[in-house]
Amino acid sequence: MALLETRGLTASYGDFQALFGVDITVGAGETIAIIGANGAGKTTLMRSIAGVLSNQAASILYRDEPIGALQAPDIVARGIAMVPEGRKLFPSLTVEENLLVGRYGRRTDGPWHLDSVYGLFPVLKERRNTPSTALSGGQQQMVAIGRALMSNPELLLCDEISLGLAPVIVRDIYAAFPRIRETGASIVIVEQDIAQALKVADRVYCMMEGRVTLSGRSADLTRDAIHTAYFGADPGAEHHELA
């Protein structure tokens, strides 16, 4: 049984339709990556699952229950947490307060609490009483991930955690993922860095203009197939270089 499934998911911003019937599945304990160019609809998909954007109830199933029409707080309560694009830390809260606020909607006991999050990202413990705005970008991303973990989610959604960070820092952050997977959580990451996505994910979905254009096991996808799914088949696309 899939943990999460979207069925013909659509989403619009006013008159502008951003998703046209997206079908993805996430199995229990599975890590999947969503890749695609800017504007492909990856964030819209994450925000739909997380309940920020409201949908048809039956277009998103979680443990076979329709959750598409639920609001964000109801989604968190069911065990889906999100690391939003751009980190979105609360500037008037300290590092530790940002982490604690992650428990507000779901106080489930589990592997994640302040101590284990500090174990995952030791630098945060040193800076626990610092305003979150005083951290470096990489440290802020760690807070954003830790904050989502504090609700002990069964499904963790991560939107572009490497955005704007230096490669060594991205490596440090991804180093935490095996430990998150060990707890049995399923993970969906949105990632522009295709090499990174293929490395961390079991399966990959590639999106273009609001549709899934390619999906498969990371090991089975060829460079050419990804290239076509990512940029479309237009001749100009050859000039793009994949990471």
Partner: peptide
Amino acid sequence: GRAFRATSDDPVTAGLMGIR
């Protein structure tokens, strides 16, 4: 109180934390 401040900063992200 943390929920008050978080909501004041950013109500949408506060919603992602389970705050209404």
